[in-house]
Structure formats: structure tokens, C-alpha cells
Amino acid sequence: MQYDTLTAFLTTAPEALRRGPVAMIFVEDDVEVATTLRHHQQMGFAQVLAFLPAAFALPDDLQESVHRITYDTTADGAVETAVTAVAAAGAGTWMYYCYNAEYLFFPFCETRTVGEMLAFHSEERRDAMLTYVVDLYADDLSAYPDAVSLDGAHLDRSGYYALARTAPAANAAQKGRQLDFYGGLRWRFEEHVPHERRKIDRIALFRAKPGLTLRGDHTFSDEEYNTFACPWHHNITAAICSFRTAKALKSNPGSTYAIDTFKWHNSAPFEWHSRQLLDLGLMEPGQWF
């Protein structure tokens, strides 16, 4: 299913947004596009929307199962514009967004679907879920100069922290139940990362509604969406295991020659299993057992 523009998709296939949950995958380059799409299908998303330039091809087995939308994902504000527009058109539907070479994991995802998790989350009167972007990187940059290797993927097992999030007002009052999270490659190589891009928290799972706007820092215009938990107990959180930062650091001329390896004493092979992420504290099940 192919659409030449986002407007064409919203006009001709609005029923797709009523059968959720919906995953929006924004393709920035041709790295691991097919594996990203297949992974999210396997997680249980009813609809997968692939936003990608016309020059990129999809394998035959994804031509009919994925909604391909021709879109310039690298333009300023492109992702925010698309997520906001899709959210307005699919009010009430749970949605998710990420980039290529990023893989969603949630507690017990090997035996439960994302729809089951979101059904429980909805029963807790939550309309959004905090996800942590956990950096993945190849163990051998000489063999994988773009820093992407599914078989040799590693992550940091420590070095994560949170700071209180403050409002931009003059008194800088702390925002309730909101934190800024840091760690991974953006922390270890912060000299190569602009300050505004160092956070690893993203509100990637949310219930769409009219008037909801995605902001450039991966938060939403509704401040309750940006909270990590409800007032009475901890909620489920999820993780997006991502090669995106590693790719950027190795493709940027200002950093690529300064980095010979991403491995350090706190690196560990990524096991591609939710149990490892739970054990490391990179997501939590809340009250969902």
C-alpha cells in the first residue's frame, strides 16, 4: 500500500487509523529498514506506517502489509508535523513512533503483545507511556563502520541518571512527575552532542486526540502525557533500543575520527530480550505481572 503524500494517506485510508495500535516508522537512511518494520509487526502493531523517501525500496513481503508514505523525514519539523497530523486523524487510537534501526521492547514482550500492554495501561487511566531510548552500538567499528550490527550489538549497563524537569517560567518550578533522563552514548560522548539532544526519554506511546502536538524535544503539548507515572503508583515503562545515536556519531565528520570504539568497561552484549532490560532497570513493569 503506497501513498505519494501524507495528505493522500490521511484522505484515502482513514480507516487504518481506527484499528490500532498504530506504529509510525520514520526512515532517515537505508540502514535496517526492513528489520525495523518486521520487528514492530511482530510486537503486535495492527498497522505499520513507513514514512520514507521515494528512492528507498521495501522488500516484497512488506509491500502489502505496510502503509508506505513518501515523505522527507529529514526536513526540519517533519516528524513532529507527521505525528501531530496522524494523531489528529486517529483520535482515540494508541500510537507509537520511532526511527529506522530502532526496536521497541516492553516488559514480557516475548509472550505478550503491545496491544495487551496498552489495554492494561488504559485501565490505569493512562494516555501515554514513557520510553527510554537505549543506545545500541556495534562491538567492532572496523568491521561495522556505520556502528550497526544486529549480531554484535552492545549496550551500556550503567551510567544512566535523571534530573528534575523545570518549567521555563521565571521561577523554574519543577514539573510534577516529570524528569529528564540521560545516559548512553549521548552522555559518554556529550562533547559531540548538542545539549538539547542529550535526553534519552521519549513519549513514544500515546493515545491520539485532536489538538495534541508533538514538540521537538519528544514531549507533547498535554503535560500529563509527559509524566512518567500516575499520582498513586508507578506505571509500565518501555525501551526503544536504538542504533540512531551510534550511526550519527560515526557519520558526523566532527566526531567519527575521534571515536575508535564505543565499547568501555560497562558495555555488555545486547541479548534482544526484555529480561535483560528489566534487570538493568531500563524499563519496569509497574503493576503488570
Rank of each mutant, 00 (worst) to 15 (best):
P53C: 04
T36Y: 02
M43A: 14
V31H: 09
F26W: 03
D30P: 06
F45C: 06
A34I: 05
D30W: 05
R38T: 15
H39A: 09
T35I: 10
V31N: 06
E32V: 09
P53Y: 01
Q47M: 12
E28D: 11
T35D: 14
D30E: 15
L49D: 07
H39M: 08
Q42K: 13
P53M: 03
M43D: 08
A46Y: 00
H40A: 10
Q47D: 12
T36S: 02
L49P: 01
E32Q: 13
Q41F: 07
L52D: 04
T36N: 02
E28I: 08
E28C: 06
F51E: 03
F26P: 03
Q47G: 08
D29R: 08
G44P: 06
F26T: 02
F45E: 09
G44K: 11
A54T: 15
M43V: 13
L49V: 15
A50L: 11
I25L: 11
F45D: 07
R38A: 13
L52K: 05
F45W: 09
A46C: 10
I25S: 04
L37M: 05
V33Q: 03
T35Q: 14
L37Q: 02
E32Y: 08
H40Q: 10
E28G: 10
L52P: 02
E32S: 13
H39D: 08
A54P: 06
H40N: 12
P53K: 05
F26S: 05
D30I: 11
I25R: 00
Q41E: 13
F26D: 04
L37G: 00
E28Y: 04
A34K: 01
V31I: 15
E32I: 00
Q47S: 14
A54H: 14
A34G: 03
M43F: 00
F26A: 01
M43K: 15
A50D: 10
D29T: 12
E32A: 15
V27E: 01
F45K: 07
V27S: 00
A34Q: 07
M43Y: 00
V48F: 00
